[in-house]
Design a protein around this nucleic acid. Structure first.
Lengths: 221, 221
DNA sequence: TATATTTATTTGGTGTACCAAATTTTTATT
DNA sequence: AATAAAAATTTGGTACACCAAATAAATATA
């Protein structure tokens, strides 16, 4: 009855989009196959189909590129994924590191209207719980102006946007300090003698190393 | 990557469950195929697979029956479907007649945990927007005792449970009479000469047609 | 440049879930 | 019981999305 064409199609487009934007080298079949965790033969076959459908191009130099249509579709899938992540964290009380797999399922629900309603229900968020920007219905995103806390200026206030290291160990460590994306902090001091950081979090002062500060992305308030 | 086995499996079990409970005759392959809108050959093949997996039985008399395991699975799918329907109506502001297709998609999201959280988020509803009972996580349902007001007995007290017609026009009409789900009413009289109804709502007496009464579901107090 | 290595591509296959059409079996009707 | 009708079943197919292994082509290295 139902066809899941869109499911794998969306995965290909989304993955390709991520590879295109997060690396600057051209994406080849091997890279895409690795990212999708699929056999290169499978991927090549699918890439050809998607090329036929004008969602991407398999170029003469064998690099793979999204077309404008493909890019738009990819962004809409990313939009769905990130909105569902917000839903799972804000409404279902999941932790931000628990929601990826579920959002991976939910993103394939077919209804543009539902996505728009969800967007509204969540208060039109611009960033997901990981701090990644949520494209609007036209695929436009607000630039993420976050920088590592290690590059910030003492005395100023920031919102924690995002973490670079997302290992459980790091999350647990930050958890103890009450630091997580969305929280507001004040950088009190950079301590010269050991390069450590002194930060105010929820009226309390905490200390941590530069290594930690490098892994926390913040945005000035 | 993902397997959709569960998807069609859930559809077969759910549909069979509905056929088993809503009719009293035995379910045969033709009936199931018709209900699923699939070819009998397809259904027979699948029924055999599901019989192997001990989710249902293809009996010597060729009737098809859920096993206990199958019934439980069916009820959990129905639970998911109805909870998502509540979500769509209560949170996404869909009308109850718009949500079936979307819930059909959402019910296949695989996560028991999410379903339980959704249940809690929605306030552990016992009935979906159509008035159908929502099984709990063990598959147990509360019997739905609501009936159309048109079938009720004059002189008794009722709680309005639910509306069948939920068009704006109808809601507005009822609004003027102060009738909405949750409110207590007393059926004063069924007036023979024009089949109209006389009802006490919040100490006032109101009159309306049988058409209206048919669209109000109530439960005896 | 010759060779090794990596990448791309082809070939022949799988499982799932579906179908139409032909055949067999069962049930109903005369 | 004979026949008609309905239901069950078999047969031979399809599309989709995947794979492993073989081969070809491109790239890198000695």
């Amino acid at each position: 009855m139902a066809h899941f064409t869109h499911h794998s199609e969306e995965n290909y487009l989304k993955t390709l989009f991520k590879l295109e934007t997060r690396q600057d080298k051209k994406v080849n079949n091997t890279a895409l196959a690795k990212a999708l965790n699929l056999n290169p033969a499978t991927v090549l076959e699918m890439v050809r189909k998607l090329t036929e459908r004008k969602l991407l191009q398999l170029r003469p130099d064998k690099s793979i590129r999204l077309t404008e249509t493909g890019k738009k579709k990819a962004l809409l899938t990313i939009r769905k994924h990130r909105l569902w992540e917000v839903f799972l964290v804000e409404k279902m009380n999941y932790k931000w590191n628990e929601v990826h797999e579920l959002a991976e399922q939910l993103e394939h629900i077919e209804s543009d209207d539902l996505v728009d309603r969800l967007d509204k229900f969540l208060g039109n968020p611009s960033f997901d719980p990981h701090g990644d920007p949520i494209p609007d219905k036209n695929g436009k995103t607000k630039p993420n102006l976050s920088v590592p806390l290690s590059d910030c200026i003492a005395g100023k206030n920031y919102t924690v946007i995002n973490l670079i290291d997302t290992s459980d160990a790091f999350l647990q460590f930050l958890g103890k300090l009450n630091i997580l994306p969305g929280i507001k902090i004040k950088l009190l001091e950079k301590l010269e003698y050991d390069n450590s950081f002194s930060v105010e979090v929820q009226k309390k002062t905490v200390q941590f190393s530069e290594k930690v500060a490098k892994n926390i992305l913040v945005q000035a308030i």
